[in-house]
Simulated scan of single mutants.
Amino acid sequence: MTNAHTPSPTRPLRLRNRGAAWTLVVLTPLIAELALGSTPVRMAWLVLLWMPVYGAGVLLIRELVARRGRGWPSILLLALAYELVEDGIGLQALTSPHLYDAASWGARVLGVNLPYFEANAIYHAVFTVCIPIALTNLLFPAHRGRPYLGVPGTVVAGVVAVLGVGLLRTVTLSEDPGYQAPTAFVLGVVVLVLALGIVALFVVPAPRVRTVAPGRQDVSAGRPGSSGAAPVPSLGYLAAASGLATLVFFGLSFPVFGAEQPAFTEGLTVLIPMAVTAVGVVACYHYLMRTASSPAWTPRHTLALIGGALVAHSVGGLVIMAHTTVDRIGLVVIIALTVIGLLLVDRRLRR
Rank of each mutant, 00 (worst) to 15 (best):
P9S: 01
P132Q: 04
P152A: 05
L303Q: 06
L46M: 09
A275S: 09
R348Q: 03
H313K: 10
V58R: 08
L235R: 15
G197P: 13
L94W: 14
S314I: 03
T338C: 08
Y54E: 00
P9F: 04
H301Y: 08
A107L: 03
T154I: 05
L244H: 15
Q180P: 00
A245P: 04
I131Q: 10
W45K: 07
G166T: 01
V212C: 03
L252N: 04
I340E: 11
T170M: 01
A21H: 13
G90I: 00
G317I: 00
M1F: 11
L24Y: 13
A44P: 06
L149M: 11
P115A: 03
A229H: 15
P147N: 13
T154Y: 09
S220L: 12
V276E: 08
L173Q: 14
V53M: 10
A181E: 06
L271P: 12
G106S: 04
G88S: 03
A230G: 13
A81L: 13
Y100N: 07
M1S: 15
G236E: 10
V156I: 06
A240D: 02
V212L: 03
G19V: 05
I122C: 10
L139R: 15
P9V: 00
G188F: 14
T10I: 09
Y179K: 05
L46V: 07
F249K: 08
V47E: 09
L77H: 14
A103S: 09
R18V: 02
A200W: 14
L135H: 13
L187D: 09
I334E: 08
A336I: 14
F254H: 12
L247E: 08
L235N: 11
L15P: 09
N113S: 06
R67N: 02
M51E: 04
F254P: 05
P132T: 02
W22H: 13
I334R: 09
Q92F: 09
M43V: 12
Q180Y: 08
G341H: 15
L318V: 02
A56Y: 10
A35T: 06
Q180V: 04
P207A: 07
L196M: 15
V203R: 14
F185M: 05
T39H: 11
S220E: 13
T324A: 00
P295T: 07
R144A: 00
S226F: 01
G158P: 04
